[in-house]
Each structure stands twice: as structure tokens, then as C-alpha cells.
């Protein structure tokens, strides 16, 4: 909680300038944004996620995400001692929250635990999706965000196959690949992402690894963090605190 407040204080100045920019109708990369001064990441505290679906809805509204596809989504996990066999569901990406499980469908027995895991593009430093793009329509920006150039994408779908996390989809009308942009149109103006803005518990925190004052450094020092599927060695930059081993 405390962390998110301090975080916002550091951003307020820049955000104020940016908003004037937006109002003035010149919403490009704001003049005080230096692309090489940032290296964006995200921190997710699994223990703070309440599965409300705010992030999914906010993302869909902010980014015009087509129905049935997701740039961020929430999974509900249930597992016991057999962590290889978790029970997972994500009805409509968790957009409308989660109903209690139907009677008799959950795990019983000792050691059963349940939790929510928000997912999004990991903005990998060594991203397999940009590696396979045949034409350079998807790429990692100098500030560490993996983006897609919709005017250049062929729609060959190779990147969708190469993402180990299922973060990409093909837009049903535009026929190009899409995924989380880490709200590049917001973070370059000093705003946080839509999902972080809408998260009521501070489970999600946008982080700038190049900013020495970013609270993420303090957090990483004191907590164990993990990335999804570390065996894939993709240099994932969405860090999870309190992540259970059953999550994949």
C-alpha cells in the first residue's frame, strides 16, 4: 500500500505535464520523456490480487481489446500437495470476477489453497516472439517494451506460436497480431498503465528498472520474486511476488 503511494508521488509531476499535452491535442511521446532513460517492467504481488477483474476491464476499455481476447487476464488456481495438478479456470479472462466453484468440482483434502494470478505480456528482454517475426513488425523498444507495428504485421501468426505465455492473439477484423503494450501511450506520458490505475489493492505495480528511485528496487531486496516459466529463459520482466510453484 505504502509502496504504491510513494510511487505515485514520483510520477505526479511528469503526469501533470503529460495531461496538459493530452488536452492540447498533441498526444505523442511527451517532450520530457527520454526513451533511453527507462527500462519498463511490472511487479505483481499475488497475495494482493482479489480477482475483481478491474484490470481486465480497464485494459479492454483503454486498448479497445476485441471481445473474447485478452491483453491481461486473471487465472484462479487451486492446488494441494500435488502441485503438478492444479485446478485452473479463467472464465472470460476473469473480466467479470469469479463465481464460487460449483459444488463438488474443487479439490478437497489437506493443504488445499486457492489464489488468483493476473497475467499479461511479460515484455521479455529476450523475447521469443520478436525473434521469430519475419519482417520486424514486432520488436523490443529501447525502453524495454515489446510492441507490434500494426501497419507492418503480415498476420503470419508465428509470434503467437512462439509466445510461451499465450499473450498474443490475432485481431479478428484487423488480422494483425496484438497484445499488451504496457500502455505505451500512457507510460511515455508519465501515467501508469490502465490495469495498474484500476487495480484497487496495488497488486500490480508498473516499474521502471532504470529509475533508481523506483520502489521496485527496495521491494526486490526484501522479497522473493519469480517470473513465469523461468525455464524458458525469455528474460521476462513481469516479476511475481508470492508466486506458487503450480503456476504456469
Amino acid at each position: 500500500m505504502n509502496m504504491s503511494r510513494r510511487f505515485f508521488i514520483t510520477l505526479t509531476g511528469a503526469a501533470g505535464i503529460a495531461w496538459e499535452h493530452v488536452l492540447a491535442g498533441t498526444p505523442e511521446i511527451s517532450p520530457n520523456y527520454k526513451i533511453t532513460d527507462h527500462w519498463w517492467a511490472m511487479l505483481i504481488d499475488v497475495d494482493k490480487c482479489i480477482g475483481c477483474g478491474n484490470c481486465v476491464r480497464a485494459c479492454a476499455a483503454e486498448n479497445n481489446v476485441p471481445e473474447g481476447f485478452f491483453r491481461t487476464w486473471i487465472e484462479r488456481y487451486q492446488d494441494d500437495e500435488h502441485i503438478q495438478d492444479p485446478l485452473v479456470d479463467s472464465p472470460n479472462g476473469g473480466m467479470n470476477g469469479f463465481l464460487p466453484r460449483a459444488a463438488g468440482t474443487g479439490l478437497t483434502g489437506n493443504g488445499v489453497k486457492e489464489f488468483f494470478v493476473p497475467k499479461l505480456c511479460n515484455h521479455c528482454a529476450d523475447s521469443p516472439c520478436t525473434q521469430v517475426c519475419p519482417v520486424g513488425a514486432t520488436f523490443t523498444t529501447p525502453d524495454g517494451v515489446v510492441l507490434i507495428d500494426e501497419k507492418y504485421c503480415l498476420g503470419c501468426r508465428y509470434c503467437v506460436q512462439a509466445c510461451p505465455y499465450g499473450c498474443r492473439y490475432i485481431h479478428p477484423e484487423k488480422n494483425v497480431a496484438q497484445k499488451c503494450t504496457l500502455c505505451y501511450h500512457r507510460i511515455t506520458k508519465g501515467l501508469t498503465t490502465a490495469c495498474c490505475e484500476a487495480c484497487p489493492t496495488g497488486s500490480r505495480q508498473l516499474a521502471d528498472l532504470k529509475n533508481p528511485n523506483d520502489p521496485i528496487h527496495e521491494f526486490m531486496k526484501k522479497h522473493s520474486v519469480q517470473v513465469l516459466k523461468p525455464q524458458m529463459a525469455t528474460g521476462a520482466k513481469v516479476y511475481y511476488a508470492n508466486l506458487d510453484g503450480s503456476v504456469r
Binding site: F8, L11, T12, A15, G16, W19, V22, P27, E28, I29, A58, A61, E62, N63, L147, D149, K151, T181, Y184, H185, R186, T188, K189, L191, T192, A194, E197, A198
Partner: peptide
């Protein structure tokens, strides 16, 4: 071009 996409959430500030 991507940075110029419209902002939908104003931000609490």
C-alpha cells in the same frame, strides 16, 4: 504512432 493512441483512463492525479 503507438504512443499517440488515445488515453481512456485519465489517471487519479
Amino acid at each position: 504512432e503507438i504512443a499517440a493512441l488515445p488515453i481512456i483512463h485519465a489517471g487519479h492525479e
